[in-house]
């Protein structure tokens, strides 16, 4: 029994560290695209945490809405922003 709790502690500790590290990288890394992808990863790790906390409903919601949909929204906005920048550069240069 002791090993199971030990493993449990190790997993939780690992999840916490990964969570904090991912959050820091999302907010501090260079490219925006890299930040969004890391944010999606952050959402998935967070779903794992919800499972560890016996909250399956929240895990499902987080995975589907938090990581999935918010990620999709972020990516599509990023694409549109790059398209706008491209158009502005081309307006500027023409």
């Amino acid at each position: 029994m002791a090993i199971a709790t030990l493993l449990g502690w190790a997993l939780d500790g690992l999840l916490m560290l990964v969570l904090l590290w991912l959050a820091w990288r999302v907010l501090a890394c260079k490219g925006l695209f890299r930040a969004v992808v890391l944010f999606i990863a952050f959402g998935l790790v967070l779903s794992l945490v919800w499972v560890r906390l016996d909250a399956p409903d929240v895990a499902l919601a987080e995975a589907a809405i938090g990581a999935g949909l918010t990620g999709a929204l972020l990516l599509s906005t990023l694409a549109r922003l790059d398209a706008l920048d491209a158009k502005q550069d081309e307006d500027a240069s023409s």
């Binding site: 399956p56 409903d57 499902l60 919601a61 589907a64 999935g68 999709a72």
Partner: peptide
């Protein structure tokens, strides 16, 4: 009866739409 419900179903439908 178990974990699931409107929001999770809606999210999956939304993902299909996207």
């Amino acid at each position: 009866t178990g974990p699931g419900g409107a929001f999770q179903a809606g999210a999956v439908l939304g993902a299909a739409g996207v």
